[in-house]
Design a protein around this nucleic acid. Structure first.
Lengths: 208, 208
DNA sequence: GTCTATAGCGGGATAGAC
DNA sequence: GTCTATCCCGCTATAGAC
């Protein structure tokens, strides 16, 4: 489906992609420097341009990888056939764990999509993200008809779930600063939330 | 309290600050261009450097203004003496309305603090933000002792509230893209959430 | 396929006239 | 206080040797 399969990359390209991802995640598109990427990949700037025509096309590759990686796991969970409450639980737990391991992803995406919204269209068009959402949306409607979930515009329910899961990760640097705690303390805090969020959601969204 | 009072600025400085805020909010520090700021302020680049030594000091001024503006309203609400549930309601409603009018603020802050965490320390030290948080935190603990609010690390409760309020605004561009809806449709959606969020919080957090 | 060298320009900053 | 002109570095990108 995607023309960029990790298996098709040679060793040099892999080194480039790793260094590029680190740099773009850290600094964003406009803050990133091709020189830094070359240095961290252990090679020359010219070689970056040999494999990827320019900064923008290298960035697009990184952006696409991040977006696809973030959504592929989501898709897997949503595709599995279990009852809604279990799925909600699994979704939150798996996704929190994933985000804790990839803390830079949410803010990176929020930011780059804000600066350059067209980029999503290009990547989104070739992905199956919207199908995945549709499936979850429909399951949610079904659960509402069954009387399991409260009556409320499903979009609000989805935004609520995503807010609770994604924001604490996207804002981790801000929160650690304001609350004056260490990264590892905040890590513990996020671990606790893995159990707390589903409890909240069940209390607030499910009819019992 | 702050050495930068809006009243102390002359007309030129006001024009600079307006143009600078627009540019920095739109592009971030590294993407912003002094030339654009000068153009939009209707003046010359050199004049920017006359009033603000360099790009960084101009940025810091903008950053400080945004941070202080965002927290001053919060402080006002938290200072008022009403019961916890009413305060929670008021907090969410006022803040959602504020954020809808200043949609760029959350992502701007998340992002710039991530890129350059030290900047907060400099601005935070001279503000009363931490006192405000402490007050809210203490009130929350008191409500827990009274048996109004469920037993749970207050930090989790605060992060939950902030997530629900801030994320939908910070992610507005992403959400409108993915859900394929217009800005004005999303504006309606956010208006709806002003009533939905308190309902959610009361169900999830209060003992009834 | 990988390197060195360099073109070329964009952008922050400053000198100096008025 | 505001302008024009210009410096000069940093960065993307390319030419060309090996």
């Amino acid at each position: 489906m995607f023309n960029t399969n990790k298996e098709d990359l040679n060793e040099t390209q892999i080194k480039i992609m790793e260094a590029a991802m680190a740099e773009f995640l850290e600094k964003g598109f406009s803050g990133a420097r091709m020189q830094n990427i070359a240095d961290n990949a252990g090679m020359n700037k010219a070689l970056l341009h040999y494999y990827y025509r320019n900064k923008e096309s290298l960035f697009k590759q990184v952006f696409r990888d991040v977006l696809i990686d973030m959504f592929s796991m989501l898709t897997d969970i949503i595709e599995t056939e279990i009852d809604f409450e279990s799925k909600l639980n699994k979704l939150v737990k798996s996704y929190m764990n994933y985000l804790i391991e990839h803390r830079q992803f949410p803010l990176f995406l929020l930011n780059e999509i804000y600066r350059n919204p067209e980029i999503v269209d290009q990547v989104l068009r070739e992905s199956d993200v919207s199908e995945t959402w549709d499936k979850f949306y429909n399951e949610l409607c079904q659960s509402q008809k069954n009387g399991d979930v409260i009556e409320l515009n499903p979009a609000h329910i989805i935004v609520t779930i995503v807010s609770l899961v994604v924001f604490p990760v996207a804002a981790s640097n801000v929160i650690t600063r304001f609350a004056d705690i260490s990264q590892s303390e905040y890590y513990e805090f996020l671990q606790e939330r893995i159990d707390i969020i589903p409890e909240f959601l069940i209390k607030a969204l499910l009819k019992k």
